[in-house]
Design a protein around this nucleic acid. Structure first.
Lengths: 256, 256
DNA sequence: CGAGGGATTGAGATTCATCAATCTATGTGG
DNA sequence: CCACATAGATTGATGAATCTCAATCCCTCG
């Protein structure tokens, strides 16, 4: 497998400054006073581009950085000895990647880009210092982690207790709402959607064949259509009712 | 359903002092300097007893407190409209219950005692102040949450990608190691285990009937025996190999 | 000693996985 | 510009894993 080091390409020319970051409301630095941003942003070591489908860190290995997604989609996952893979989380702009309890230790999961993407990197080593010096950042980190915990637990519920069509509906409904809340698109019923059917299967605990058949059913029922990297929601209300997804819960996903 | 208020019984006589708490190494106050413990422990509002099988907070409702488990077992869970229930987490002594991003808002999951138990309560309202004033506690909270995130993601992996026998093996292996690490019992192969087969099913995403059949298989294979509130591990090595549970990962569960 | 909750077993239905083949869109090299 | 390679999507046939319904058993507790 390709070296991870090579997948991250440093942006030498004009990296985005935190002060002018258009998605700061979504990130770790949401809530940092403008007057403090000049020094807290010093901890943002670097900005990197990464191509689609590259690993940025791997389970069992250490990682120099943790990241904020500035642009693009990522998936975190764990694998089993037999090669099966469970996608744990889809990370979208504003989301953190790679924070865990033991900042020095090996990663307990892997992360891969699903699209060409841009990451803001933070030295893991310097994180404790940043958190000590700026309580607003520490509080925000805690909020982001608690939100991710809630999302993770909701996925445990859907995977543990729902049928194939319900799981896929839940997965798509959640992503649909998350994307729309990031880009403030109220009316659009179609979003960019870079996941393959196999990815959807890895996220929902189904085989790609069964995902394919279930998507066909959903298309026939007029719920949604996934084709050529696009997700079109045909009947949002029915989709949410089918899987028990509560759109108002997305507010606790946003945190801004 | 019974009122939650009534399930918590305040301990009026001689509640445990944080300074003499025998499991402090496992808790939120691990790492707090002895000299600071006198004032941080002021935030520990009260100690409560609770009988087995009582809800201590409920999804959708607000809760005055968050808790540290001092004694006993708890389960957190989410439910679906059709009544199906997913157990999200088994909380053991030292574990936190009820922390979430929006401390003022409604709970996003419920919690129930599995045994008679004792809880140390913290006013949710006062938490931000405590975290602001004591960085050691804030850091510890973040560690505990990150650890729980890892456990949650491991369960996502096992429920999403493993068979019934593997899921049950994983669930039991994890609890077995957690209990042994709490009580420092290296050699014992039997632990107290208050979960019904239905509980195991709710935790692993299986029906109680299938849990029953699978436990029978595991008994016949000489892996483990669950009977009369006890879990006896007959072949620990085989159990861990079956489900891919790595005992050394428990170190990141302990955090002390 | 009866009641009730959990455990156990059986039979049959359903969902989902597996294996295998074909199709389609996209990109690549000649 | 075309032949080819490749990855992802699609469909069919079959079998295994798990669920559902139903009945009985067993243990504990009042």
């Amino acid at each position: 497998m390709a070296e991870i080091k090579n997948s991250l390409i440093k942006i030498e020319h004009n990296p985005t400054q935190c002060g002018e970051c258009s998605i700061r409301r979504l990130t770790l630095f949401h809530g940092v006073a403008e007057s403090e941003l000049s020094w807290t942003s010093e901890y943002r070591s670097q900005q990197y581009t990464v191509q689609a489908r590259k690993e940025i860190y791997r389970e069992g290995q250490t990682s120099e950085f943790m990241f904020t997604v500035y642009h693009g989609w990522f998936a975190t996952y764990k694998t089993l000895g037999n090669g099966r893979r469970q996608i744990l989380r889809i990370a979208l702009p504003g989301d953190m990647l790679g924070f865990q309890a033991n900042l020095e230790g090996a990663m307990n999961h892997s992360a891969v880009s699903l699209t060409d993407a841009v990451l803001c990197a933070f030295s893991r080593q310097q994180m404790p210092e940043l958190l000590r010096k700026n309580l607003s950042v520490a509080k925000r980190l805690s909020e982001l982690n608690a939100r991710d915990m809630n999302i993770c637990q909701s996925r445990l519920l859907t995977i543990g207790q729902q049928s194939a069509i319900e799981r896929i509906a839940f997965f798509c409904a959640e992503l649909f709402y998350r994307i729309k809340s990031i880009y403030n698109e109220k009316e659009k019923n179609e979003i960019y959607f870079p996941l393959s059917q196999e990815d959807i299967g890895d996220a929902t605990g189904l085989t790609k064949i069964h995902v394919n058949r279930t998507l066909k059913t959903m298309r026939e029922k007029g719920l949604l259509e996934i084709a050529s990297r696009s997700l079109k929601v045909l009947d949002l209300k029915a989709l949410c009712e089918l899987c028990g997804f509560d759109p108002s819960s997305i507010q606790t996903y946003r945190l801004y």
